[in-house]
Each structure stands twice: as C-alpha cells, then as structure tokens.
C-alpha cells in the first residue's frame, strides 16, 4: 500500500474518499447502463452502454483499492452491493433518473466537463493509486466529453422539440450542480495533504467551458434559484433506494453469489 498517511484517522479519511469516488462512478455507471436496449437507436445504445462500462470499471478500481485500505476486511463486492442507502456518498446528480435522452446528455456534459478538470488534477494526487486510476480515467472522459458536447450542440441547435427537451433537461438538474463544487471536512483535510482536489477552484473554469458550449447550442444557462445537496453526507434523493434495489438484487437474494 502506497499510503502517505501516517495515523489511522487519516487512513480512514482516505478510505472514505476512495469510496466516494467509487460511488460516483458506480451510480452513474448504473444509470447509464439503463440505456442498454433502450437507446434511441442501435449505435447510441451501444455507445451509452460502453460509457457505462467505463464508469463501472472505474468503480471497480476504486472499490478494489478501498478493499486494500480496509486491509481485506471488506471486498470490492461488499462495497458495491452490501451497503445501505445512507452509506453511499455519491453526488446526487449522478443518481438522478436518466430522464429522456436529452436530459441524459445534459447531465453527461455537466459531468464530463467536471471530470476532465477534476481527473486532470487527481492524476497528480500524492496518493499513487488514486493518481493512477485518474490517469487512466481521464483518457476515457476526454472521449466522453467530445461526444456529449457533440450531442448537446446537435440537440440544442436542432429542432424546436430537441431544443426544448434539452433546455428542460438542463433546467431540471441544474440545482444539483453546486454540490459538486463544495467540500466537507473530509475532503478539505485530504486537499491539504495533497490527496484530494479542491473542486471549489475548478468552478470558474467549469462555468466558462459549459457556458461556451451552451451558448453555441443556443441553450440558456439556467438561473437556478434552488439547490439540493447532501450526497457526500449520505443524504440522498428518493431515487437512490430504487436504484439500489435493482443494483443489489442478486447479492441480497443469493448472498455470497459469485460470477
């Protein structure tokens, strides 16, 4: 284990942070996987399923590292399948229902821009494993971004119907954005140790990039007057429980099941 952490408490923080990153990836990956066989056409079905796979792979890498940090007390599968809703600490935006294709693409753009900025810095983390995972993931995310940007431009600057749906997609989820740029004590401490990224600092660049793409897509940047937060503290929307009941079904029904 390549820990830079000396005392036990710091190690717990690292484990918690690693799980958060794993949860972000798992929950979004699951949401994207729901498009499998529901895509608007075959190529899109395959594309969304492949992107889902990238996220699920990313979740596995984080959970596997978390398993090491727990010194084998918990396995990768324990973290993915055998925790309660309140134990997950993903961003709320990742767990929102997929909505229509336009809303899925709106979320994807929001997150792809965020992750290109966040992963770039995470790849410089003082924790060698988290840095290696980010170094791998950034390549995939850059490709995802190229595609979500393309779709946002096509839908926004497309027909009246596609434009309206995309605008509605952004409006519906915009209040979940601020949470991505907030940090609690856990992350603040890890930022100081050079392990985590201070996402607050990423916000101006994120706003600039998103603003430019939305402008070109003729979409208005929502002026949201509401904000929902709580994912990092384990407070979730009503949607996560439903998602988990499907995600965890096999392990709950057949405890100890292995592929």
């Amino acid at each position: 284990m390549k820990l830079i952490m000396s005392d036990l408490r710091d190690k717990d923080l690292l484990l918690q942070f690693t799980l958060r990153l794993g949860d972000d990836a798992l929950i979004l990956g699951h949401r994207l996987s729901e498009w499998c066989r529901n895509g608007p056409f075959l190529e899109e079905d395959i594309a969304l399923s492949n992107i889902a796979l990238d996220y699920i792979g990313r979740a596995r890498m984080h959970y596997s590292y978390a398993s090491d940090l727990s010194e084998g007390e918990k396995s990768e599968d324990d973290f993915a399948f055998l925790r309660e809703c309140r134990d997950y600490q993903n961003f709320l935006i990742n767990e929102l229902p997929r909505g229509d294709f336009a809303q899925t693409m709106a979320r994807q753009l929001i997150l792809d821009v965020f992750y290109t900025l966040q992963l770039e810095q995470m790849s410089q983390s003082k924790d060698a494993t988290l840095a290696a995972i980010a170094g791998k993931a950034i390549k995939e995310t850059k490709y995802h971004l190229r595609r979500s940007t393309d779709w946002v431009l096509r839908l926004g600057d497309g027909t009246e119907e596609s434009h309206n749906r995309l605008q509605a997609g952004f409006d519906a989820i915009w209040g979940y954005v601020p949470e991505m740029f907030e940090q609690d004590e856990v992350e603040e401490k890890l930022v100081k140790l050079g392990v985590a990224v201070n996402t607050k600092d990423l916000k101006p660049e994120w706003e600039k990039q998103i603003g430019a793409i939305l402008k070109e897509a003729t979409i208005d940047v929502p002026q949201q007057e509401w904000t929902v937060r709580g994912g990092r503290a384990g407070f979730h929307t009503e949607h996560l429980g439903h998602l988990l009941s499907e995600l965890q079904y096999m392990q709950r029904s057949y405890p100890g099941l292995e592929w």
Binding site: E43, I46, A47, L53, D54, R146, R147
Partner: peptide
C-alpha cells in the same frame, strides 16, 4: 463516422 462507439469500448464505427 457512423458512431463513436462500436462493438467494444476501444472501437468506433
């Protein structure tokens, strides 16, 4: 380009 993904993650159509 037909699609930026193909039968596997590493391919496009």
């Amino acid at each position: 380009l037909i699609s930026e993904y193909g039968s596997t993650a590493c391919k496009a159509m």
